[in-house]
């Protein structure tokens, strides 16, 4: 047995344990009638009409609430699959993902079949489930369709709060995911593994995007400079910087914009740019302490 095979098998066994754990959380959250409905639906996942109706009807059985995943359960999730964040799933997502996994046991093309008739909420569920599908299921076309969507929630269901994109996408598709997120004014900070997957090509694309928006006198996404920081010089960045208020000594006022600038450019490798940020940013202490981060841009 090759080491690649062993890695795949252990990843699949982690996914199987994760799905079993998800089933426990779901059953605990459902009323007993609905839990019974789900278990019947799971056993009939090989019957097409039954699966299709169960998948569609899920919302009427679960309502629209979140899946309840407390702090301890979040830790369990992360220990099963690094980066798994089911606390960002709805209960209906979780049920649909369980149905999809059950269907995959009988039909390796089940995801494409379910996606073909899926509405936006159902598509989101299918994409959130990417972390839990067996490695031998080919999701490339499915993900490609999802990333070409105009529907913001569908895009976010792939891009946000999931270890899957950073782990699985090649650089070309990754860069286009990031660029499309900015193009659609979708936040970058919930994209896992973002900083580690920055690259020179993405920085070039981001600066070109800034130039286009600048030429059109349109607003730039606040997180754009994150893509650029490790690769660009002060002179490349400064022309696209926003107008911010500063005190007599040149210190920026503390605003959401300056917080974003500080966070974006703090780890620049360009000496002039680093000096520039250190000279103007009032945020050194809160960045060093960890108090200021993207998730708390507005909150602190």
């Amino acid at each position: 047995m090759s080491s690649t095979q062993r890695t795949t098998e252990s990843a699949d066994s982690a996914r199987i344990r994760a799905a079993a754990q998800l089933h426990k959380w779901v059953v605990a959250a459902l009323a007993s009638d609905e839990a019974q409905w789900l278990d019947e639906a799971l056993t009939k996942a090989d019957v097409r009409r039954s699966l299709d109706i169960a998948f569609s009807r899920t919302g009427r059985k679960t309502g629209t609430g979140r899946l309840t995943v407390d702090i301890a359960a979040q830790a369990t999730a992360a220990s099963l699959i690094a980066g798994w964040q089911p606390e960002h799933w709805d209960l209906s997502d979780a049920v649909r993902i369980l149905l999809a996994i059950a269907a995959l046991e009988h039909d390796p093309t089940a995801l494409d079949r379910l996606a073909r008739h899926a509405d936006i909420g159902e598509q989101c569920a299918l994409y959130r489930g990417l972390v839990l599908y067996p490695a031998d299921v080919d999701v490339s076309d499915l993900v490609g369709r999802g990333l070409r969507t105009h529907a913001q929630p569908v895009f976010e269901s792939i891009a946000h709060y999931s270890p899957w994109p950073a782990r699985e996408l090649d650089q070309h598709r990754w860069n286009h995911l990031v660029l499309k997120a900015m193009f659609m004014d979708i936040a970058l900070w919930p994209i896992q593994g973002f900083d580690d997957r920055r690259n020179a090509d993405l920085a070039r694309m981001a600066l070109d995007f800034a130039a286009e928006r600048y030429a059109a006198a349109r607003a730039l996404p606040l997180e754009l400079f994150r893509c650029v920081a490790p690769f660009a010089s002060l002179s490349e960045v400064i022309r696209y910087m926003p107008d911010v208020q500063a005190d007599a000594r040149g210190r920026w006022q503390d605003t959401v914009t300056t917080r974003a600038l500080s966070l974006s450019l703090w780890d620049s490798t360009d000496r002039d740019l680093t000096e520039f940020i250190r000279a103007h940013s009032p945020h050194e202490a809160v960045i060093q302490s960890g108090e200021l981060h993207w998730g708390a841009l507005v909150a602190i």
Binding site: L222, M241, A260
Partner: peptide, 23 residues
Amino acid sequence: MLALRVSDGKYATERQDRPLCGR
């Protein structure tokens, strides 16, 4: 709005003739 406004301000001196946008 979580977006930067490109304006005729301090750091955008090259483009002072640009109209304000994203108001």
